[in-house]
Design a protein around this nucleic acid. Structure first.
Length: 262
DNA sequence: AATTGACGCAACCGCGACCGC
DNA sequence: AGCGGTCGCGGTTGCGTCAAT
């Protein structure tokens, strides 16, 4: 029953988020909140489904997200909570401020599970058996996935330095605060996404992103927000306004690749 | 230098729970 | 009380990166 049909229909966009989309989503949520995820993308002018927006916000754009590798303490907490709660990632995430269920889930599957796997030979902390050990391969460090919003990927030495997922990151709940006050909670430091390098430059996010975003009046955004649209889904014609936003995107030079047919 | 294969993570999918009418 | 809509969660997949060969 009431299962919302997801994005598939109507050519809503899927896949990695672009910096522009992030920007729009953040700006919209900062201004109008997210009372209705389903309606939000329309209101914000995003060609995404509500689910996708929600996920993006919760996992990457929320100002209080703590990024970076998990500390030993955090990993221990996860392990301990997992023993108690099982795969209830959201419950576990609730005990780890700044961490998302998705992130915890990933860490569990990629590191902790292996580490705890009795069939793996014991290893010094964090060695996670070098990936269940086919090839014994030091955990690769360094930035990965340049095409993906590294929102996530702090693209920073902390990651590359890690011989495990453990780093000093825990030291800072302050990072959270910084997130609120300006330092990017892992917002892309180097953006390339699916765009070209020049695009990346154009839409480069840096540590000042949040401070700028949060302090910026709406009209300062490249993409003009239309309060009337944002305030009332009713005012958003299904396609008419999409056309408007489509134009905006086109002007931003991104949609050409995304929607070649247009 | 090219190829292969494993790893890690972002994002998607589908389901159940919850809520309002 | 029943129905329909939305939200949130957990599992899974897709794909880029990089070490090993």
């Amino acid at each position: 029953m009431g299962r919302a049909p997801c994005c598939e229909k109507m050519g809503l966009k899927k896949g990695p988020w672009t910096p522009e989309e992030d920007k729009i989503l953040v700006a919209h949520i900062q201004s109008f909140g997210h009372n209705n995820w389903r309606a939000l993308p329309k209101q914000a002018g995003l060609l995404r489904c509500g689910k996708s927006c929600r996920l993006r916000w919760i996992n990457y754009l929320r100002p209080d997200i703590k990024r970076g590798n998990f500390s030993k303490e955090e990993e221990d907490v996860i392990i301990s909570l997992h023993e108690q709660l099982g795969n209830r990632w959201s419950a576990i995430a609730a005990r780890l401020p700044g961490r998302t269920d998705n992130e915890i889930k990933n860490v569990w599957h990629t590191h902790l599970k292996k580490r705890l796997d009795p069939t793996n030979k014991p290893e010094q902390h964090g060695a996670q058996a070098a990936g269940a050990g086919k090839k014994h391969r030091p955990k690769r460090g360094g930035a990965k996935k340049a095409t993906v919003p590294a929102t996530a990927a702090p693209v920073s030495p902390e990651r590359s330095a890690a011989s495990s997922s453990v780093t000093e990151s825990s030291s800072s709940m302050t990072e959270q605060e910084q997130g609120n006050t300006g330092s990017s909670p892992g917002f892309p430091k180097e953006e390339s996404f699916t765009s070209s390098a020049s695009d990346a430059e154009e839409f480069q996010f840096d540590d000042t992103f949040w401070s700028e975003t949060l302090s910026m009046p709406l009209e300062s955004f490249d993409v003009p927000m239309e309060p009337s649209d944002a305030l009332g889904a009713s005012s958003v014609g299904a396609d008419g306004d999409l056309d408007y936003w489509l134009r905006v995107f086109m002007e931003s030079g991104d949609v050409h690749q995304e929607l070649p047919q247009l």
